[in-house]
Amino acid sequence: MTRLPAQLWIGAVLSAALLATALLSFLWTPYDVTTLNIGAKLKPPSAEYLLGTDHFGRDLLSMLMEGGRISIAVAVLAVGIGMGVGVPLGLLAAAHRGGWLDEVIMRGNDLIFAFPALVIAILITATFGPSATNAIVAIGIFNIPVFARVARGGAMTIWTQDFIMAARVAGKGKVRISVEHILPNIANLLIVQGTIQFSLGILAEAGLSYVGLGAQPPIASWGRMLAEAQTMIYSHPRLAIAPGLAIVVMVLGLNLMGDGLRDLLDPRIRRART
């Protein structure tokens, strides 16, 4: 067994830890975050409240744990939309490279890239109402061209290889070749891009919640915790630290994992190791 790259380990541990606390929040949190306890508002960190409380007396740790859920869910589903739609489109374009279908798909891609993502996301969520679902759709749409482009780019180099010619000699059609030969060989690219888009999704969701267009109260979210903390930045700067760090750790963990996976899966590096 080859040794796993260090960054893969570190990244996996960081993101798994946050994922675990988010999952744990379904079963247990130190305090209930939906009930307000004005009597305990703005308490500093203590044994009772590990990270202290906010201006409504809610336990920050509990809010952080629950806030992770929505970030992760939005990012995962948005990556799912991007992969689910983008990868088949990219494979299709590569299978018909140079043809009109390729041209249409890629120009459509360029067009989506030309739209300011954040503005459109804000437009979508503002129009159809701020909610987690609309945030997912808005972020997911902008993931589609990313995956389409990665899939097409990777597939194009595979299509020129001799083993594709061998498959064609064995009578296999474009769809079968795309599934049997192309997809397994670009899976590593897609996984790496997936972790990158996942982390960008976390950041985007945080940004949308921060401006009030993500998940709505009473659902806790890291972005909105920061927005609320900003109003008290002079008096209680402490409130802004923990949610920000949670985002950083999650995104950092995912990015490190992506880099590590790339090292692990890159055939050039792997060949050098064997």
Binding site: G207, Y210, L226, A229, V248, V249, L252
Partner: peptide
């Protein structure tokens, strides 16, 4: 740079405000 990419810019902005303005 990994860290730089992971920091949401609005949070970084808040940190800057806390340090340089507050």
């Amino acid at each position: 740079t990994q860290l730089g990419i992971a920091i949401p810019n609005f949070w970084f902005a808040m940190l800057l405000v806390m340090l340089f303005a507050v």
